[in-house]
Design a protein around this nucleic acid. Structure first.
Lengths: 219, 219
DNA sequence: GCTCGCGTCGAACGTCTGTTTGAACGCGAA
DNA sequence: TTCGCGTTCAAACAGACGTTCGACGCGAGC
């Protein structure tokens, strides 16, 4: 836990108020665990051990706080995905195969979301934001399109034989596979299978997902 | 629109109070469109054109109303899926192939969720319930397991060569594909593809999904 | 014709919500 | 020491919320 608030965007002030950081972390945790609407400003400030007014003082409003967490975590995740896609391109002379493209999209949230990983909460937060998000947040997700476009283009380059329409639809299916990785869904799977599915083994899960998605893309 | 409230469970009273039905329909519509937490009892009763107290009088509480809608729509959907699975079994001597099993799971929500279909709102309601649901509703979804088990068993019978663990995981991926069919997701896909993906053609979409999922299962 | 019970009504209740206020505090600079 | 500024604090605000209450209308049964 090395200062997840300031580790990434170069804050103007090196030493941010400890209160602000405590609010940020507590809010992310509670939102990820219980949902946005089920967490009050009082819950957040109590968890953070700070005064009630801190949220409005440091972030302006509850929504603005939520949005700031969302924006930061989303950009972190997308940056990592773009990085892996770029690396895959470098490895294959600018035209990575389908499997490597999908891996660039799957791996970051899967690894970060694995148990005992620092960013597990952040990933859960992002997943929750996708379904409970504000109109404002959905607007950002729409600009996500520019990010998704890179993956769509890479896929079309890898499969020039496939009609574009098919590529888009299959990408849509693939997104569904990823976004379904919530606590509740894993729980149900674990319960359904009688406990033979282990969520912990991230690499094995990644391999399973890639096998499935790659085969789907090659239909 | 032929009395969707009484068409299915044999109500004790033939002529239910028109108020109760109006509340039921208005609540389902508003919940499906705006989410549970974003719709107040006052919104519902205003939309239904009835008195504020009607919700508590007829259903006990807002949560109970929500739960009743959820339970009814879920059981309707699951019954249709089970029916199609049974039919597929009858067609193939009790051992339907993977594609027919998946179709029994995909087709009902897809058809009912298509534009201009009576049950489009109900499907959207169910999808929303899956992510925003109560603890109580998640409990029901856990009993959904008995429903899912039929599909898991059918899949294991169709692919006895595949380790059970793999079947469960791939079923999990397939569920993700289905649950991703929300308004917002379609919107993003439509926007991303520049409008070449048409949501309206349900049969074509079903075929695409089956192609993808069947190939994934045969990996 | 009277009464009983169901359904509906307007009005209010208590609680929880996000936000605002103004005073107090801590601390480095003058 | 004094000033000024950024931060924290307890307290209160106004509104929205789900729910409850008592009265009223009205058709059925005795």
């Amino acid at each position: 836990m090395t200062d997840p608030l300031t580790q990434d965007p170069p804050e103007t002030e090196e030493a941010q108020a400890a209160t602000k950081q405590a609010v940020f972390n507590a809010a992310e945790r509670l939102f990820a665990l219980h949902g946005f609407q089920n967490v009050s400003v009082r819950d957040i400030t109590a968890e953070a051990g700070v005064n009630l007014a801190s949220v409005n003082y440091h972030f302006g409003s509850k929504d603005a706080l939520l949005f700031e967490i969302f924006r930061r975590r989303t950009s972190e995740l997308n940056r990592e995905r773009a990085r892996m896609l770029h690396e895959a391109g470098a490895r294959h002379g600018g035209k990575p195969p389908v499997r490597d493209i999908l891996e660039a999209y799957f791996a970051p949230p899967l690894r970060w979301g694995s148990p005992d990983h620092d960013r597990r909460i952040s990933v859960q937060f992002i997943i929750r934001a996708r379904s409970e998000g504000n109109a404002e947040m959905r607007e950002v997700l729409r600009n996500d399109v520019s990010h998704l476009e890179r993956f769509a283009n890479a896929l079309m380059a890898a499969r020039p034989d496939l009609p574009k329409e098919d590529v888009y639809w299959r990408l849509h299916f693939v997104l569904g596979m990823v976004h379904n990785n919530r606590f509740a869904e894993f729980d149900r799977l674990h319960h359904l299978s009688g406990g033979i599915t282990r969520e912990g083994d991230v690499d094995a899960l990644l391999k399973r997902m890639l096998d499935f998605a790659e085969a789907g893309f090659s239909a």
